[in-house]
C-alpha cells in the first residue's frame, strides 16, 4: 500500500504560515461550581436528580434535557464513588489538549446511583485485563485540583 497521507512534492504554490493563540475562561456556573467544590474539598461526586423523570445525571446540571424541568442546587445528590465500566479504549495518539501523553486508557464509568456515564482515565490496570461490566473506584488527586482531574483516574474496585 502507498502512503495515502504523504504530502505533495509540488512546491510551485505559494503558502503563508499563520499562528493564532487564543485563550478562554469558562465559568462553571451555580451547579458546576458546587460539583467542583465538593470534589476538591470533600472528595464527593455530585449528580443532579430530576424528580419528574426520576433520572440522576452526571455531570450535574440546572435543566433536565428530557422534560426541561428547572433543577437547582437542592436537586444535587452524592453519586458513586464506585461505578461500572461501560466501555473503554486505548488511544495511541496524543490529542492537542494538555492531557497525559498517549497511550492512556480511557473509559466510561457509570457511577452507582447515576443514570449517565462519566468519561475518564483508567489506571492501575493493564489494557488486557479491562472488561466491560467490571467494577471501578476513583483515585483522587493528592493535591486537589478544581477540575475533573481532581479524580486522577478510576481503577478496578477493591470491594
Amino acid at each position: 500500500m502507498t502512503d495515502i497521507f504523504a504530502p505533495s512534492e509540488n512546491r510551485d504554490y505559494f503558502e503563508v504560515d499563520q499562528h493564532i493563540t487564543a485563550s478562554s475562561r469558562y465559568y462553571a456556573g451555580r451547579v458546576g461550581s458546587r460539583f467542583f467544590i465538593a470534589l476538591r474539598d470533600e472528595q464527593k461526586i455530585l449528580g443532579s436528580h430530576c424528580p419528574k423523570c426520576n433520572l440522576t445525571y452526571w455531570p450535574p446540571r440546572n435543566t433536565c434535557g428530557r422534560c426541561f424541568s428547572q433543577l437547582s442546587e437542592s436537586d444535587l445528590l452524592e453519586i458513586g464513588p464506585l461505578g461500572t465500566l461501560e466501555t473503554f479504549t486505548r488511544p495511541n495518539y496524543t490529542p492537542p489538549q494538555p492531557v497525559p501523553a498517549a497511550p492512556v486508557l480511557y473509559g466510561i464509568i457509570k457511577l452507582d446511583g447515576a443514570d449517565t456515564g462519566m468519561a475518564h482515565l483508567l489506571g492501575e490496570v493493564d489494557f488486557e485485563n479491562l472488561k466491560i461490566g467490571m467494577r471501578m473506584q476513583p483515585v483522587f488527586a493528592e493535591a486537589p485540583a478544581a477540575n475533573i482531574l481532581a479524580i486522577r483516574y478510576f481503577k478496578p474496585a477493591e470491594e
Binding site: 469558562y26 458546576g32 473503554f88 488511544p91 489538549q97 498517549a102 482515565l121 466491560i132 477540575n147 482531574l149
Partner: peptide, 26 residues
C-alpha cells in the same frame, strides 16, 4: 477539541476516534 465540554471532557483524551473506539468496543 473545543467541541468537548470545557469542564468535563476537554482535559481527557478521546476526541472523535475515542468516541467511535468506545462504540466499537461496546
Amino acid at each position: 477539541s473545543g467541541v468537548a465540554h470545557p469542564l468535563y471532557g476537554r482535559s481527557l483524551a478521546g476526541a472523535a476516534v475515542g468516541y467511535f473506539a468506545m462504540m466499537g468496543a461496546s
